[in-house]
Write a protein that binds this DNA or RNA. Structure first.
Lengths: 185, 185
DNA sequence: GTGTATGTGTTGGATATCCGACACATTGAA
DNA sequence: TTCAATGTGTCGGATATCCAACACATACAC
C-alpha cells in the first residue's frame, strides 16, 4: 500500500537508538537517561537523534508502542474476528507486556504507558470489528473499539491489583460473557 | 599520536559489519558466508562493505586480528618485560583464542588464521624486547621476535595435538627454561 | 550449446548523518 | 547574587552511506 520504501539508514538508525534506549532502561531509571547517553550507546550523533525523534518522551512513546505491537502480534489479529479466544490472547499480551515493563524502571510515566497501551488496543479492536462487520457503521464500531480498549486495559490494571492469585486467563474469562453481550457482537 | 579522529560513522559501520560476520560465523561455515549475507545482517549496503574492506578475506583477516588483540590485552604487554610470567600469559591468550575459534567454523582457513596469530605475536614480542633492551640492536631484536613468534605459535599447535591432558600452563612451563636461554635475555 | 539465477566488485548522483557552533535552560557551588 | 558545568534543541556545510545500475563470473537446468 505505502509504496515508498524508507531509506535503510533510517531503519538502522532508529533500531540503534531504540536498542540503546532499552539497554539503558535496564541500568537506570527513565528520568536519569539523557539524550547524550542514548546517542553515545547507539554510536550516533546527537543531531541525528533529533532528526528521528522530537525528544526523549517521543522516543519513549515510540519504543513502548513498538514493543507492545510485537507482543500483540498484529499480523495475527489483523485478519481475525473478535471472540473469546482472541480476547484472551490480547489480554495475555497486555499483562505480559506490563510484566516486562516492570523490570525496566519507568516509574513516574505510568500515565504515558497507559495511554499508549490503550491507543494500540483501540486500533486493534477497530480493525477486528471491521473484519466481521463488513465496513458498515463506521462510527459505531469506532466508539465500540474505544470502550473495549478502556475496559480491557482497566481489567489488566485490576488484575495486577488483585491478590487472589488468579491467572490472567481465569481473570478475563470471568468477564467475557458480559463484554460480549455489552459490545453487541 | 595519530591526531586525526576517524569519522564515527566509520567506526560504527565497521563494528556492525564485524559483529554481523561473527554472528554468521556461529551459524554456518566461512565458505558459505557471502557478502550479501553480511551486509543484510549488518543492515548496511553492499557497496558500503567494499568501502571498508577489499573482500571477504580481508574482513576475515581484520576480524581475527582484532579479536586476538583483545585477547592479547596489548595495553598490558606493551609496557612489560618478557619473562616467565608474561610468556605464560601470552600462551594462554593464544590457546584461549583458538578454543573460541574452534566453535566458529573456519575450516579450510587454518593457514590464514595461523599467519595472523604469528604476525600479531611478532609485534607484541618485538615491543616487549624493545622495552628491556633500550632500543639497541634493532635487527637482532626483530629477528628474535620472529623466532619467538614461530616457536610459541608452534607450541600452541603441539599442545592441541598433545593428548597427555596437560594444562597450557604446565605445557609451556616445561619449555620456558630453554626458550629463555635460547633467546638470550 | 542457451538460458536463468546468484554472487562479486565498481561507479555517479542522491541523501542521511556528522561536526562545530550557537542560544537557552537548569543546577549546584562560591 | 554570579559563575561554571551540563543538558537541550537547531542550523549550514562536509562526508559516509545508499541506490540503481553495470560488466563479469560461476553454476545449474534444459
Amino acid at each position: 500500500m505505502t509504496n515508498t520504501k524508507t531509506d535503510p539508514r533510517i531503519l538502522r538508525t532508529r533500531k540503534l537508538i531504540m536498542d540503546a534506549f532499552m539497554e539503558l532502561s535496564g541500568k537506570k531509571e527513565f528520568k536519569d537517561i539523557t539524550v547524550k547517553d542514548i546517542t553515545a550507546e547507539a554510536m550516533i550523533n546527537r543531531a541525528t537523534f533529533y532528526y528521528h525523534f522530537e525528544d526523549i518522551y517521543d522516543l519513549l512513546e515510540k519504543v513502548l508502542s513498538e514493543v507492545l505491537l510485537v507482543n500483540l502480534d498484529c499480523d495475527y489479529f489483523q485478519d481475525n474476528e473478535l471472540n473469546e479466544e482472541s480476547l484472551v490472547k490480547i489480554f495475555l499480551a497486555i499483562t505480559n507486556f506490563q510484566k516486562s515493563l516492570s523490570n525496566r524502571c519507568h516509574r513516574g510515566y505510568e500515565d504515558t504507558i497507559a495511554r499508549i497501551i490503550r491507543e494500540q488496543l483501540e486500533v486493534v479492536f477497530y480493525k477486528m470489528l471491521l473484519n466481521q462487520r463488513n465496513k458498515e457503521a463506521d462510527d459505531a464500531l469506532r466508539i465500540t473499539a474505544v470502550i473495549l480498549s478502556w475496559g480491557i486495559y482497566g481489567a489488566s490494571v485490576e488484575w495486577r491489583r488483585d491478590d487472589k492469585g488468579m491467572t490472567p486467563e481465569e481473570f478475563i474469562k470471568l468477564a467475557i460473557p458480559f463484554i460480549i453481550s455489552g459490545a453487541n457482537f
